[in-house]
Design a protein around this nucleic acid. Structure first.
Lengths: 213, 213
DNA sequence: TGTACATCAGTGAACGCGCGTTCACTGATGTAC
DNA sequence: TGTACATCAGTGAACGCGCGTTCACTGATGTAC
């Protein structure tokens, strides 16, 4: 998990040395692990510190509460989402357009798999109205959504998509589609669909909706 | 909120009289209200009973735990989702196809608005692996997804959609798109998109993806 | 119509656990000279 | 290179609140005759 290079601050705002930074990272990793294993509803600060073999008091040196830690994890995830834009910024107009769409879906699925537990909480809290998490979500998707919007505008300009669709809404819908389908994978498999059906179908839906082809 | 007609059981499995049924309903309504106001993470059994002016002991006469109450609410929601199928089963092949798509989106948005707090929890728990909630979610979407799958199959048969897309996956993707976009409404509005942009764009995306037109 | 009894429904009050949170302290690392 | 001191990092142990949960009980409703 890559980390930003900016200086990291403790809960009271003081600058942390490298030793402290390691502890902070271990706390975040433990939070991420417990989130994936048992979900937000079971997440306890005591368990997080138990996991890294330290005391609950340590936790408070780095985060004012458990939300602050989750938010930090969400920001790490944001950082990992940015590279996905490279699949979009080239456009999907050539013969290999569909192939590029498939690559994008693959990478997005990988990204979501890596961060699913954290992203689920982020989205839940955003939808429940928490401002900090709402902003984190907006910021995370910003680049991808902008790139997709541009694709839609291009297709509209070329007359392949109706002018009545809204580029930003379309882009957001595409993201929603992918994010939300991943958890359905087991269910889709249970219905006898092959493993690639999800990937292929998503790629085609994206390709058609973003390029109009 | 319509209620099923089957006999309602208490937490210990005994049949409840009409007086008890009223209490049960009030507990569920309070649960729903608190869920909408503050979210799952803040939901307390004590608060639910406080809300209806009764004792925590009463709660346990009806539900073994708070999950049982949420599950009951999710099942009420399922019941309200069924009528949405009427917009789909007629097909969208005529001249008024897009109009029908718009009507469907409107009704779906209304449905989701009415139950959003509960459905969010249902989906979270389903995605976190809770079997009961996973089944509730499958069951809820079953009819709508089947109807949509049929539309895709028809379009494939007529050569308007590629045979490579998977009907069930496509249908699930459409549901995902709508459900997930609603919470973005405020954000979309903040970006200066008109209120109907969301509705219209979703309708077009659905129309295109399900009918191939 | 009235009375006795059975069943249904609701609850006050308490118990106890577990968690968040803090404080005063110890130990580790860095720095000045 | 060594020593004294300052700062950084970590924690044991306790406090207390709030919540889930239960029990023994009261009150309400229904029913038999």
């Amino acid at each position: 998990m890559p980390r930003t290079k900016k200086t990291i601050l403790g809960a009271d705002g003081r600058v942390l040395g490298s030793r402290a930074e390691t502890t902070r990272t271990r706390l975040l990793d433990a939070t991420s692990k417990l989130l994936a294993e048992a979900g937000v509803l079971e997440l306890r600060i005591v368990d997080i510190t138990r996991e890294v073999g330290s005391s609950p008091a340590t936790f408070y040196q780095y985060f004012i509460d458990v939300d602050a830690a989750i938010l930090a994890l969400a920001e790490q995830a944001t950082h990992d989402e940015a590279p996905l834009v490279s699949h979009l910024s080239t456009g999907w107009d050539g013969d290999d357009g569909l192939l590029r769409a498939e690559e994008f879906v693959d990478d997005y699925m990988r990204y979501w798999d890596d961060h699913s537990a954290v992203l689920r909480v982020r989205n839940l809290k955003a939808e429940e109205g928490n401002v900090a998490f709402r902003e984190a979500r907006s910021k995370a998707n910003l680049l991808v959504i902008q790139a997709m919007s541009t694709m839609v505008e291009q297709a509209q300009h070329d007359g392949r998509l109706p002018s009545t669709i809204h580029p930003f809404v379309t882009a957001t819908a595409m993201i929603a589609m992918i994010e939300r389908l991943l958890p359905y994978r087991t269910e889709i498999a249970r219905r006898g669909a092959p493993a690639e059906a999800l990937r292929d179908t998503l790629a085609i839906l994206l390709y058609r909706s973003l390029t109009g082809r």
